[in-house]
Design a binder for these strands. Structure first.
Lengths: 124, 124
DNA sequence: ATCAATAATGAGAGCGATTACTGATATGGA
DNA sequence: TCCATATCAGTAATCGCTCTCATTATTGAT
């Protein structure tokens, strides 16, 4: 189960993990997958986050940000700089305790961007 | 309806809007609220985002980031600097078209932070 | 090995948020 | 007036996820 999540960099959903694990253990139930994924998150071996109303799991524990392509759904990891953002420093200076952040860019990946331009200029 | 969202800075949920609008139009249904909020978002008069599995609406169209208190649920708007983040520039340089971002800090607000410290050091 | 205590699982019901459907009512030209 | 279109309230359905509970391992003494 843990291995299933680690085996991809695609930020799988519980559903995806279910399908993957099912190949090795055909009788496993979806509830068990949810339960064990939660346990793994609590143990700190996985991280979880929410995108489009579904929980996704990630075996990469290093803090990182994301870029999401609006068209093809690609979700790209972006390593995070050691230095906190200026706006975070400002929050701390104002007395807030900042313990984490979510930073997610969205737009078009290289491939999709090219597709759009061609569609606009070239044909139709 | 639009006015109901504009009348608060609390990033209301559809439920909240429903309760608010109901006072003026007691026969309105929750479905209608959802539908019309969607329309307003499509028209670009409101923005929506998701937090803790519920959709929230925001009448402030200026791009801004958020700070969320883990303890009391406070959700604070943070005005966004004109200058894009260095990491965004890097993405663009790599050929991605970045059209927006979500940046959300979380931690403890001033009040809650104080509460925790007192609880730890002082009593019990 | 045996057996009781404990933990984990599968199957499916339940839940909260949201969306889709449906029939009734209102609006607005020809 | 008559029909077309739009909107809405009410409600059923869906979706992702969690909970319950009877059943099935697993564990740790004996």
């Amino acid at each position: 189960m843990y291995e299933a999540v680690m085996a991809t960099d695609a930020h799988p959903t519980a559903e995806w993990v279910y399908e993957a694990v099912r190949r090795a253990m055909p009788r496993i139930s979806l509830g068990t997958v949810y339960r064990n994924l939660q346990v793994l998150v609590e143990e700190g071996r996985l991280k979880s986050f929410t995108r489009d109303g579904r929980t996704r799991y990630d075996g990469d524990l290093a803090p990182h940000d994301h870029f999401a392509c609006d068209r093809c759904g690609l979700l790209l990891d972006i390593p995070r700089a050691a230095e906190p953002l200026p706006v975070e420093k400002r929050l701390k200076a104002r007395g807030f305790a900042v313990s984490g952040r979510v930073l997610e860019f969205h737009g078009l990946c290289r491939k999709c961007r090219r597709g759009i331009q061609i569609a606009k200029g070239g044909r139709k």
